[in-house]
Computed example of a mutant assay.
Amino acid sequence: MSSPADVQRLAQIRSRHADASIDWSLSADGKAIFARVVPGTAPVAIIETTGDCDWPDRDFLIGAHADIEFLLRLLNDAFSEIRRLKPRHNPHPVERQAKPKDYAAECAMKCNDRLFRRWLTECHNVPDVDDPERIVVSVRSILRIKSRGELNTDPAAQARWLDFRASFEAWRAHP
């Protein structure tokens, strides 16, 4: 993205180019550069070159106006293409994607839920649901995971958790 200084400089270049004389040419003796200062009038000498001004520099000066015009046209074409391809700011942005589920945290909360503990005892024969550590170890064993963190990183563990949770929800609906 252009800085404000770049935008200002480009505007100045465009302004100088628009105001500059046109039809630059070299005099017959190769010492002066002529340009048409006012449209419809004869060219006048605008630059006197010295003996140290070699042909490449004279050629550069003679072609400067036409070269800048060419480059500005290319730049305008490029900007037009960028604007065409770049999506416009949408005043109705698409809603952000939902934050990924934290199944590990969900599992930890369920392990503290009294009804979930009862379900573990009745449906999975988990003994001593009053011991929080035994519940955590039992759930990890049932889900075949080493830590609850795997529920957020391992798709297979996530699938087992979702099935396990669905079984609990079905039991809870009809205890």
Rank of each mutant, 00 (worst) to 15 (best):
T49W: 00
Q12W: 12
R160G: 10
L143Y: 02
H124Y: 15
I68D: 00
W161L: 04
I68G: 00
S141R: 05
Q12D: 14
R144S: 15
P132S: 08
R9C: 13
F70M: 11
Q158Y: 05
I62F: 02
D52L: 05
I82T: 13
E69T: 07
R114G: 03
W171E: 01
F79G: 13
L26M: 07
G63L: 09
P56T: 00
H17V: 03
I22A: 13
G51I: 01
D113E: 15
P127I: 09
A173Y: 01
T153R: 04
A170H: 14
I13W: 02
L85P: 02
E122Y: 06
V7T: 13
R9H: 12
R88L: 13
W55F: 07
R165N: 11
S15W: 09
T121Y: 12
A20E: 10
G63Q: 13
S138Y: 01
S147A: 11
P132F: 08
V37L: 08
S138I: 08
K31G: 05
R84E: 02
V139A: 08
S167T: 15
W24P: 01
W171M: 09
L26P: 01
D113S: 10
V136M: 07
A98F: 06
V139C: 02
I135V: 15
V94M: 08
I62G: 01
P175Y: 01
T49V: 05
Y103P: 03
S2M: 14
G51C: 03
T50M: 06
A105V: 04
Q12S: 11
G63Y: 06
W171F: 12
I22M: 10
A166S: 07
E48Y: 09
L115E: 12
S21K: 04
H17N: 03
W24L: 03
I68C: 07
